[in-house]
Design a protein around this nucleic acid. Structure first.
Lengths: 213, 213
DNA sequence: TGACACAGTATTGGATCCAAAATCTAGTGT
DNA sequence: ACACTAGATTTTGGATCCAATACTGTGTCA
């Protein structure tokens, strides 16, 4: 474990933002966080910079940190970035994935199919995709993918909460296709299915502008 | 300009890294930088975090900041990321570029063609590409593109210094193709030429492993 | 001669205090 | 009632000091 205080603060804030307690536009006051965690403001400042690098906060001099608020168009472009970057991460990862990873993937996929809690779905879906990328050792690529997921997390939640995942069987079918391609070590299939999966999600989001209010 | 001290420190270090004074693997001691700039260590710490977000430094607890050292494979993948992301940035930017931007582009391109200083080439080449993206208002995309350029800057320099840009007329021809497509507002051509340009560069780098020693 | 242990040094992490900037509030005038 | 201003309050930025960790060099012993 990281015994460094700033990392603990970062972990706390990361969870708060990804978990939805802090929403886009929310301001983060250093003193308040420091007091709540029994630390001084300095590790909070460091933590906020770390989170900025992860795409979870933004910062303006003398004004402080906020959770970034994105427009519909920005989210759309972020999904286009995902369409292009994540297949690359998957291709890099594929050769390194062993039977144990496949086993974990199958397990997560089963849990997604059994699940009916919306908040849990967000976590499991993320876990599934991140597992498929877990063999990728290229840090800049991993960080990018993580940033893209981070910065759209709130809008994914808003969409799901809206009942937007009513046709969730589609997600499961697409995950199955990806998973099978991974098992077969078929890079080009995996790439293609993954890209289609993200593109379809992007199209769905594009038809739900109410998510971005 | 930003009157904030940490931003000044960040600008100083950014220039030092991009300019080649600090090389991959070099350690950055907070006290030394602080003394050199007449500030305390605190703004230096903040600056290092900012640079981390820009892909210019990396940080390990209790060990400090270093300029990241990349393997040949990592640089190769970063170029693949560029092949996919930069065409997207260009397509987003294209509709927003006005005659003044085109004029600036032509000017930069002329200066590249006239230029024979290798270090200057790096700056002008970067300026050309960044100008073509300057109409893109999607911050996450801009930041990503900047990070990718930042983290490979040293290896670009090493390649150029190696005489690798002896066939520089190719770069100019490719820039001309891109520039023409921009002038014609032909997004798909611009996208295709840009991707080809980056891919060719990647292939050249792949044949020069000596750059990564 | 080489490997390991230990102490001393150097460097980073955190707390507290003060300064500067921004935000908020109340009051004033139209 | 509303816009604007000025002062009070809040919040962030920076400096300094202390603590904790990592690094370095030396000496000892096998």
């Amino acid at each position: 474990m990281t015994d460094v205080s700033s990392s603990r603060v970062a972990a706390y804030l990361r969870e708060a933002i990804l978990g939805g307690d802090l929403k886009p536009g929310d301001r983060i006051r250093q003193e308040e966080i420091a007091a709540r965690l029994g630390a001084s403001r300095l590790p909070v400042r460091e933590a906020l910079r770390m989170l900025e690098a992860e795409g979870l906060t933004e910062h303006e001099p003398h004004k402080g940190a906020r959770v970034p608020r994105l427009t519909q168009h920005e989210v759309d472009v972020i999904y286009r970035m995902r369409e292009r970057l994540e297949p690359l991460a998957l291709v890099e990862s594929l050769p390194q994935l062993g039977p144990a990873d496949v086993e974990r993937l199958e397990d997560v996929q089963r849990r997604i199919e059994d699940n009916d809690d919306l908040e849990k779905f967000l976590d499991l879906d993320r876990e599934f995709h991140m597992l498929t990328y877990s063999g990728c050792a290229i840090e800049p690529l991993n960080q990018n993918v993580t940033r893209l997921w981070n910065s759209t997390q709130h809008y994914r939640r808003a969409y799901v909460a809206l009942g937007g995942q009513s046709r969730m069987w589609i997600v499961n079918a697409e995950h199955r296709l990806i998973l099978d391609a991974v098992v077969r070590r078929d890079a080009s299939d995996a790439e293609r299915y993954l890209e289609g999966h993200i593109r379809r999600t992007r199209n769905e989001l594009a038809h739900h502008p109410e998510v971005f209010d």
